[in-house]
Write a protein that binds this DNA or RNA. Structure first.
Lengths: 141, 141
DNA sequence: TATTGTTATACTCTATAACTATA
DNA sequence: TATAGTTATAGAGTATAACAATA
């Protein structure tokens, strides 16, 4: 069952663990979980209904309720009735939340660059183009 | 502050989110969390003391106690007194745990290969070697 | 009846602090 | 005194099930 690209799959998994460790730490340093960071990233440039956002994140509605509760309590997000459907609720980012997200994203770039700087410029370009080839289409932010 | 390798950093982050989603799902399908999966992967070929394993994972000792408790209750791991230091405790994987881990790893490879198969064989080799260059040294399994 | 969202409940993961036993 | 590990406690993230309000 093992094919010759098992090593590539392993390398991908390992690089992902290492990257996610960096992302988690950057988020944690700014008092955000990885999920909160994802939410802020998604809402950076749009307002969404709860159900749509939950679907986007692959989470249950009830999970998102708690997530938004906590973020709203901290002033990072806000809720408002959705126009047109009396049942629906929109969520959107606040200026405070946006500033927070921007700060974390900057520190992520900084924390990750030592990794990428292991490579010569030409190799960096090559790696980027290979990664972009295998990247699934609709990954937000 | 933005440098020309921001796009590479972004690609790395995105590929990591996509990969981790696959890993999480494969683990969840087998009733394991990502952390449990990591633990099983690490213990696949070694026996470790609690403190060493916690350090390896970047977790507190108390966190690992709970993690090992639950895995032990399910028959995936076992504890035993460590030879030579009366305070220390070794953890190791059981045959059941090893079988479990092997199953998840197989399904991860399977789930990830559509991604890597977007590339021609030569590109796969190139990507693997680039990833291995930037991989931090002591990432296990 | 079906959909949107919240609440209640339960479990896992995580950390901090206090504790026991050994070194 | 310092180190190894556990326990107690608390909070976040997650899901399932039951519910209210609207469609």
């Amino acid at each position: 069952m093992a094919t010759e690209n098992d090593d590539l799959v392993d390398a991908l998994a390992q690089i992902s663990f290492a990257t996610m460790a960096v992302l988690s730490k950057a988020a944690a340093d700014n008092d955000l979980s990885l999920t909160q960071l994802r939410v802020l990233g998604i809402l950076r440039d749009r307002r969404m209904r709860m159900a749509a956002l939950a679907g986007f994140l692959g989470l249950e509605k009830s999970t998102l309720s708690g997530l938004v509760d906590r973020a709203e309590r901290r002033g990072l997000l806000e809720r408002a009735p959705s126009a047109g459907d009396g049942r629906a609720v929109d969520v959107f980012i606040t200026p405070v939340g946006a500033a927070h997200a921007a700060r974390v994203h900057a520190s992520i770039r900084q924390a990750l660059s030592p990794l990428t700087n292991e490579l010569a410029p030409a190799e960096q370009r090559r790696l980027q183009s290979l990664l972009e080839k295998i990247l699934p289409p609709n990954v937000p932010s």
